[in-house]
Design a binder for these strands. Sequence first.
RNA 1: GGGGGGAUGUCCGAGUGGCUAAAGGAACGCGGCUGUAAACCGCGUGGCACUGCCUACGCAGGUUCGAAUCCUGCUCCCCCCA
Length: 390
Amino acid sequence: MTDSAGEAARFLTRNAVDALPEGELERQLAKGRPLRVKLGVDPTTPDIHLGHTVVLRKLREFQELGHQVVLIIGDYTARVGDPSGRSSIRPEANPAEIDGNALTYEAQAFRVLDRDATEVHRNGEWLDMPMEDLFRLARSSTVAQLLERDDFAKRYSAGEPISVLELLYPLMQGYDSVAIRSDIELGATDQKFNVLLAREVQRSYGVEAQSILTMPILPGIDGVQKMSKSLGNYVGVNDSPEEMYGKLMRVPDAAMPTYYELLLDDPLEPSVPPRDAKRALARALAARYHGEQAAAATAERFDAVHIRHELPEQIEDFAFAANGDAVHLPALLADAFGVSRSEARRLLGQAGVKLDGEALDESALDLPAERLDGAVIQLGKRRHKRLRRR
RNA sequence: GGGGGGAUGUCCGAGUGGCUAAAGGAACGCGGCUGUAAACCGCGUGGCACUGCCUACGCAGGUUCGAAUCCUGCUCCCCCCA
């Protein structure tokens, strides 16, 4: 075992949770040949967010060390739905939607990965198998083994349903490893069971078992739950610089060390005040996905709006119709911001609506059109529209 | 195949004939304080033609002056036995 293998292994595992079996990665690296590094993603949502980039960045590190990254777009497994971390059965995913997502997924993944050094497969290539092959696959594990997994065990003992299809999911993922002959599989910690079970599946097919490397899960911008699209606490890699910056500024301080460790190359200096650390993070990530210039402009605009309380530079116009002189505010707000009229009324009653910076109150539900024309109407802290009479 | 239990708002979860647009919690929104942080305080969270009306407690019917609550059928889920 050479020093360089040990060094590389230490580097690659520095912010990982598990690298199993113990020492295996170093042994693999010491062989001196490029490793086949697997990552499987199910295109269940069209967007990649910063949470996904944690593992993608790790993959990128492998790439930069000369290893072969194999990205598997789980078009077939997406139709089953990964039960990991789930407490209930997923609704069946729609194949057409999955195909669409797969394309955008791939494109977005290459904002982190080097396209030329990445092998991409759809697992439909091999999972669309005859029943006979499924028999073989289904024999590679046992119900007891599958039920050992934490989320299944919980659901089972809580008397919640587990479908047979879900039980099959880890086997399908494991077969991916057989199909591409992976040396190592990456995943977030919630994938630990799946990636470990793949070792069993590989053995049962007589191929060498992969090692595994799991990464921590990035909390969402609420700082508590994992970042996920369905929880609405995510920052998408395709978000505009303003969205990225603004969302990241809402992340609680407590999550900063984790964000730094998982998303940036340099660790968080403890001496940096939390607010500055967060600004630097927001700035760095906006720059990563949109360039230094856009990031600088975004930061400047953010300060203008939130520190100097100026209006945002760009405010979308909203054309309103006024067929008399008076305009009914709840209706206007409902149309402009996509809230219900009832909600608009409530917000008016809570001083949550401002016209050119001044709070409106619910005593005046109708305002003259001329007062509105050209004015900026603001809902809460962050939603603005410039009104134009149609 | 037999027996038992269950389905309530974004989620969890109370509620077994009127006082229930439905307790409580979580989540979220608005306001205050602030750093679009945390903590804390206040208000709010079905819709609308809004001092009122409409819709809502798995689905469809029924009983009743009145049903989330009672009855019938159906759908789905869980457990035990086989």
